[in-house]
Write a protein that binds this DNA or RNA. Structure first.
Length: 430
RNA sequence: GCGGGUAUGGUGUAGGGGUUAACACGCCUGGUUGUGGCCCAGGAGAUCGUGGGUUCAAAUCCCACUACUCGCCCCA
């Protein structure tokens, strides 16, 4: 093995896998546009401060040094984005989108960086498809975001997904809940695993996430956030559920669903899939009404989700769902002998200009026709256009179908139209 | 940061102290003068992860390291 390898936690997306990506991203983008979302692209790098204020310096991503942060010579500190939302809200504020017709509905796609220990379905660079609705408090906005996630999965043919929903409250009611939870857990401290004791001290909500033995029973009797929501949050949650019911969208209320980033308010949700290793969430999202203010803008509500493409691909493979095969060029231009190469090159470009996919056989020295035929076969080519000296002297090309049809000779000048007609005919026949 | 597993041609594997390290797939070239898939015949390609040790002899045994991988934490 050569001592050449990609950096830890990085992935090469080979052509074979890449067409999953094309399909997934295309499907997601089509769907998003149908909902009225517009594509936006923002930089991979932001000032570190943005994430510090957005995610909170107490958040795990920040505290555990999971960010790729670079100190610039001039003293600035910049960071490879560990998530999309903060950057998108920054873009909203900076570009004056607050004065656009509200709400502003955006989607984007690109790489995200977190310096974690890699494992199945978790990489240091991963790609997310992300949508956000900014400037809207209506629970129907939450609904749209959630349904976009669900319908996206349906469009891919995904099966066995569960929709996990919870409300995480707001600054008005969350502290009261945390206090109640703390009290309860402290009373049962003897039953807590060491990890959970640590969490209790550091971030009590995280205990809800615990996978330790016996926690299911213990937490079943723990205070539930639902009973502590303020009027506003409760109404919002109830309205959202009514809307989900109206669309007959099933979901599981998961009072243990908490998310790692501090800015979430009210709605939080995840979409879980099976068979992709220990990482089961392919979507995660929620509402973040306080984020814009936290990063220094005027108060702007928002709701959105991020979807991990690598995990979606893992899940699709697990379920044996394959994307439609990408089209390969239907013809290969083969040539041998004399001045045929020049004619072949000209023909190939002429076909491409006419909109016909053409692969040109390369041959530095003499190369047998057999070898060129083999090449065509390997690439699933439908027609080999053979330019030999005999054909060329008559201004013709031999057309050899690889699917069993008869070989014919067609005048070079007529080839583009002839091929177009053939391809159209074949397509019509399926 | 903490655990477990693995490390042999491009890929997937077999082997197991002793002269040319095996197999499959892939790749290349041929199988009569210019024609694919199947088949057949050849060929290229590996300092058996790295460094040390034991031994007359190490890919094989021992130790360390590194990398990859899976899991914990956390998250998409």
């Amino acid at each position: 093995m050569a001592n050449l390898q990609r950096a830890k936690g990085m992935q090469d997306v080979l052509p074979e896998d890449r067409h999953y990506w094309d399909w997934i991203v295309q499907t997601a983008a089509d769907l998003a546009r149908r909902y009225g979302f517009q594509r936006i692209d923002i930089p991979v790098i932001e000032y570190t401060d943005l994430f510090a204020r957005g995610m909170g310096t107490a958040s795990d991503v920040f505290v555990q040094k999971e960010m790729y942060t670079i100190a610039e010579p001039d003293g600035a500190s910049i960071t490879l984005r560990p998530e999309f939302t903060a950057g998108l809200v920054r873009a909203y504020i900076q570009n004056g989108m607050g004065s656009w017709p509200q709400p502003v509905k955006l989607f984007t796609f690109g790489p995200i960086f977190r310096r974690e220990r890699p494992q199945a379905g978790r990489y240091r660079q991963h790609s997310q498809f992300d949508i956000e609705i900014l400037g809207e408090t209506d629970p129907a906005a939450d609904l749209e975001v959630m349904m976009a996630a669900m319908n996206f999965c349906r469009a891919l043919g995904y099966k066995g997904l569960t929709f996990q929903l919870n409300s995480t409250g707001c600054p008005a009611c969350k502290p009261g809940y945390i206090k109640a939870l703390k009290t309860y857990l402290a009373a049962h401290a003897d039953k807590l695993a060491p990890v959970d004791k640590e969490r209790l001290a550091k971030n009590p909500l995280r205990v809800l996430d615990s996978k330790e033995k016996g926690m299911d029973e213990l937490l079943a009797d723990a205070p539930h956030i639902i009973d502590y929501l303020c009027q506003d949050c409760e109404t919002h949650f109830a309205d959202l559920r009514l809307l989900l019911d109206a669309l007959e969208q099933s979901y599981a209320i998961n009072f243990r669903l908490v998310r790692g980033i501090d800015y979430y308010t009210k709605t939080v949700f995840e979409v879980w899939a099976e068979g992709i290793g220990a990482q089961s969430a392919i979507f995660g999202g929620g509402r973040y009404d306080g984020l814009a203010e936290a990063i220094g803008g005027s108060s702007t509500p928002g709701v959105g989700f991020g979807c991990g493409i690598e995990r979606v691909v893992l899940g699709l493979k697990e379920q044996n769902i394959a994307p439609p095969q990408p089209d390969m060029p239907p013809v290969l231009v083969a040539h041998f002998g004399g001045a045929t190469k020049t004619a072949a090159v000209q023909l190939a470009f002429q076909l491409r200009a006419a909109g016909i996919g053409a692969r040109l056989a390369f041959a530095r020295a003499r190369r047998s026709l057999k070898s060129q035929m083999r090449e065509a076969n390997k690439h699933n080519i439908r027609y080999v256009l053979i330019l030999g000296e005999s054909e060329l002297s008559e201004g013709m090309a031999a057309v050899r179908p690889l699917d069993g049809g008869e070989q014919t000779r067609i005048p070079l000048a007529e080839l583009p139209n002839w091929l177009k007609a053939e391809i159209r005919r074949q397509k019509a026949e399926g």
